[in-house]
């Protein structure tokens, strides 16, 4: 073991690397979630405050799929495990998102931004409240999939296989989404519709339907992050509540609506948070917000915002 000097003080390298690794794991979730928020804001101009609840919903659906026999005794339904849930839960959450866009979100496109914000806050509270009524606030356990039971010995800490998988999967998901938007024809439609939806529609594309699918995509990403979070954090109705505030800060830091910005600042802020836990532990809960205020003062468009 060796020591590391930060700002004139010496720290145990194991502690530093350990916290950085935890930061990277948290950052994986920040990145996946802020990515979805950025996609939705970029295309729909809706600040989707329900994103935390939709993440929670992903975890809950995975939990429910696993516990189908107990939830519906006598129905003969099978227990559906982690791997199928990784596909199924985001699809289910995405479909819920589609319905949400159709029934609620679409009615506020033409109103002031504030109303989209208030509407999605309300939706989040409804979902969180109802699940709280039904399942209580205690965390529900979700076991680590058996393929991932075990740890790597990194010398400075033990890294559970599952958490390593989360980091890798998150990078793949973020990169994949970025490719989808920046490099495919579908992505070109989305980017064009962000600039000039009227013209894109006049070329023959059903823009309202595209917006609905974009919302569903963003929401499905939140659901996917939720499934991945289930084995790490406890599954509870409130699990997305504090997270969504951090995620919004991340999105603002990255540059509202910038896909790449939200990914980069997601991982970056996870690491910064981890480092703060070493250097000044009481500051770890607030460092992201302070960072956001500083960024907005120095560079109002965010790290990677365009205008």
């Amino acid at each position: 073991m060796f020591t590391i000097e930060i700002l004139g003080k010496t720290y145990n390298s194991a502690a530093v690397f350990g916290q950085l690794l935890i930061g990277l794991i948290n950052g994986s979730f920040y990145a996946m979630l802020s990515l979805g928020v950025a996609v939705i804001f970029g295309m729909l101009r809706i600040a989707n405050f329900a994103h935390g609840a939709q993440y929670m919903l992903g975890a809950f659906v995975a939990w429910a799929l696993l516990n189908l026999p107990e939830l519906f005794p006598g129905s003969g339904l099978p227990s559906i495990g982690y791997w199928p849930s990784l596909i199924l839960a985001p699809v289910i959450v995405g479909v819920v998102g589609m319905a949400t866009e159709r029934i609620f979100i679409r009615r506020v496109y033409d109103l002031d931004h504030a109303y989209g914000f208030l509407l999605t806050i309300g939706l989040a509270m409804m979902v969180e409240g109802l699940l709280h009524v039904r399942f209580g606030s205690a965390g529900l356990p979700y076991g680590t999939p058996k393929e991932f039971q075990g740890t790597f010995n990194l010398g400075f800490m033990f890294l559970p296989y599952y958490r390593a998988w989360v980091i890798v999967a998150s990078i793949i998901i973020c990169f994949g989404t970025w490719l989808l938007i920046e490099r495919t024809r579908l992505g070109a439609y989305l980017r064009a519709a962000t600039e000039n939806p009227e013209l894109v529609q006049a070329f023959g594309i059903d823009v309202p339907r595209m917006l609905m699918l974009t919302y569903a995509l963003g929401v499905a990403l939140a659901g996917l992050a939720g499934v991945m979070a289930a084995p790490i954090y406890q599954v509870s109705p409130q699990m997305g509540q504090n997270l969504i505030i951090i995620v919004f800060a991340v999105v603002v830091i990255g540059g509202m609506g910038s896909i790449l910005g939200s990914i980069v600042s997601g991982f970056l802020l996870g690491l910064i948070e981890g480092l703060t836990k070493v250097v000044y532990p009481p500051g770890s809960t607030t460092v992201i917000f302070v960072f956001m205020a500083l960024i907005l003062l120095a560079r109002p468009q965010g790290l990677m915002g365009r205008t």
Partner: peptide, 20 residues
């Protein structure tokens, strides 16, 4: 359209291939 309506966030090729 008037003012041409070229999309800034799309490449020339993407602009060309955009209308279905």
């Amino acid at each position: 359209p008037e003012e041409r309506g070229i999309f800034a966030s799309l490449t020339v090729e993407e602009n060309l291939l955009l209308p279905p």
